[in-house]
């Protein structure tokens, strides 16, 4: 299987966006700020965040802010809670939260809470437990959780719990590892993990490991490196990560590397992208792979960043 090709992954991230005539970069224009978060967090986990011009990033991020206080995926686009979290995470990562008008951003996020405690993604009202996590994570980083009705927010997440111990996007929605991460994260950040049956959910999550060692997101689906993050972080948050075969999972992630040009793909021999590169490296971080910085499973930021921002250590 070989080792984690750290230097190649760093080089891949630094050069990925410079490729010309790349259709992928064209269609992700509107979610560029997510891409920036994935890339920058990966660089930090690999200890190379200083290789980028931080002031330039900060000034670009701030140009994505809308007058509502929310952030767009790129300059001139409409704000959405998805992009607002990425913006806040990037600024936290670079220790530049002081450039924000914290109340303005947190008012935007708090304004998206609905009567039943759920959150909408933007003014058009799409509801999803992803947005509950995003709102809670965002406000936790900004230390403004008191701006929302936390009790109702927690109630809504709990209403999305299923018979298998997992969570879906809305009440009754099928359990899905990505949604489970969001719900467990939201409950962890609000000190509400007692709503989870840890043993039941832990068993469902560890059943996601398939023969190849990789993790899938739902029963009978193919394994994908992104679940190395969604499943693993959830298992860490409920303290059940020792129930899976960590060594086999690490081997699966390492098998998904492009060993020549860097980057990590969803499955062995597929094309790499920045999204899976982040999830692969973040997964290895949770597996305590040597040389990769520790990541916080709930904030999805390096532990030293969380300590500095949240706990003022």
């Amino acid at each position: 299987m070989g080792e984690l090709e750290m230097e190649k992954h760093v080089r891949y991230i630094l050069t990925i966006e410079k490729k010309k005539d790349d259709f992928v970069s064209l269609v992700i224009e509107h979610l560029r700020i997510n891409g920036a978060y994935w890339g920058l967090t990966t660089l930090d986990l690999l200890g190379k965040i200083e290789t980028i011009d931080q002031d330039e990033v900060v000034s670009w991020v701030m140009k994505c802010q809308d007058e509502s206080g929310g952030f767009a995926g790129n300059i001139g686009h409409d704000p959405h809670i998805l992009y607002t979290l990425s913006a806040v995470q990037i600024l936290a990562l670079l220790d530049k939260l002081d450039v924000l008008d914290i109340d303005k951003v947190s008012n935007y996020v708090a304004g998206l809470q609905n009567e039943d405690g759920s959150f909408s993604g933007d003014i058009w009202g799409e509801v999803d437990t992803r947005f509950s996590y995003i709102a809670i994570c965002c406000l936790s980083i900004l230390r403004r959780l008191e701006k929302i009705n936390v009790e109702k927010a927690v109630d809504f997440v709990v209403r999305c719990k299923n018979l298998d111990g997992g969570f879906g996007s809305t009440p009754g929605g099928e359990s899905h590892a990505g949604q489970i991460f969001c719900c467990v994260g939201a409950l962890a950040l609000t000190g509400s993990l007692h709503h989870i049956d840890r043993d039941l959910l832990g068993w469902w999550l560890c059943e996601r490991q398939v023969k190849s060692g990789g993790l899938n997101g739902r029963p009978e689906k193919l394994p994908d490196v992104c679940y190395s993050w969604w499943v693993l972080s959830s298992l860490v948050m409920i303290d059940r990560v020792h129930w899976i075969d960590k060594e086999k999972l690490a081997r699966f992630i390492l098998d998904c590397q492009d060993k020549e040009n860097g980057g990590i793909s969803d499955r062995p021999d597929d094309a790499v992208d920045v999204f899976h590169t982040y999830f692969g490296v973040a997964g290895l971080s949770l597996l305590e792979y040597p040389g990769v910085k520790a990541i916080d499973p709930a904030y999805a930021l390096p532990v030293d960043v969380v300590n500095k921002i949240i706990f003022k250590k």
Binding site: K18, S25, S59, W60, K63, I75, G76
Partner: peptide, 18 residues
């Protein structure tokens, strides 16, 4: 045209039609 800022962090190559 899209304003990518003075020194785009992640410059994007656009297809002409798009």
């Amino acid at each position: 045209p899209q304003d990518d800022g003075p020194n785009p962090v992640v410059p994007i190559a656009y297809h002409e039609d798009f």
